[in-house]
Design a protein around this nucleic acid. Sequence first.
DNA 1: CCTTACCGTAAGCCATAGCTAACCTTATGT
DNA 2: ACATAAGGTTAGCTATGGCTTACGGTAAGG
Lengths: 103, 103
Amino acid sequence: MTNGLDALAALSDPTRRTIMQRLRGGPRAVGEIAAGMTISRPAVSQHLKVLKESGLVAETRQGTRHYFAIAPDGIGALRSYLDDLWGDALAAFARHVEKERAS
Amino acid sequence: MTNGLDALAALSDPTRRTIMQRLRGGPRAVGEIAAGMTISRPAVSQHLKVLKESGLVAETRQGTRHYFAIAPDGIGALRSYLDDLWGDALAAFARHVEKERAS
DNA sequence: CCTTACCGTAAGCCATAGCTAACCTTATGT
DNA sequence: ACATAAGGTTAGCTATGGCTTACGGTAAGG
């Protein structure tokens, strides 16, 4: 795992998010992913490289076909990061409400 | 709420993530946030503007001081987005494992 | 009223990200 | 062996993002 934060930068790009959406049904080959998209296939390859290096997708080759699938671990790292922020935000918010009530 | 996805782009920047870390303890004024950081105060203001527009932080003014605090709703939107991906990823992974087992 | 503190905004510069086009690799098939 | 199919890689252009500097705005304090 890179460090779980690269995944945030990876998902910041709209194109990469639509790629993730296309992988929701299961593994897809590069050509299938690129089909119907407005950008070129090499561009998709570059995005897949970023997604892979960030730990969000996994690659499995089969002949000349490169299949990419969502990697649960990558999303899990993101979730735990957000959960930390979430917990602190709620705690701070609770303290703030408490101080308001004491006035 | 913008749409919950702007928050991803907002958190993609490392500087904005450290700002969020500084807000974990509760609301902070702009000057406090900028103190100790390597970048200038106007740069912090610009980052805070992005964080605010993405729904990740909320602003409350008090005199000339502008206090910023983590907005739980913004993080919640992100979490639900990731949970969607997470669920589908697990389902697809389970199907994949099942197909492997059937060989 | 004038100054000072605190902060947002605008202009400009520089670096990086994303795209396309062209090329190279590797595997399948005949 | 040759042709084709499927993808990764590179070079180069363009656009966008983030930073600084300089400026404008508002509230508090003497």
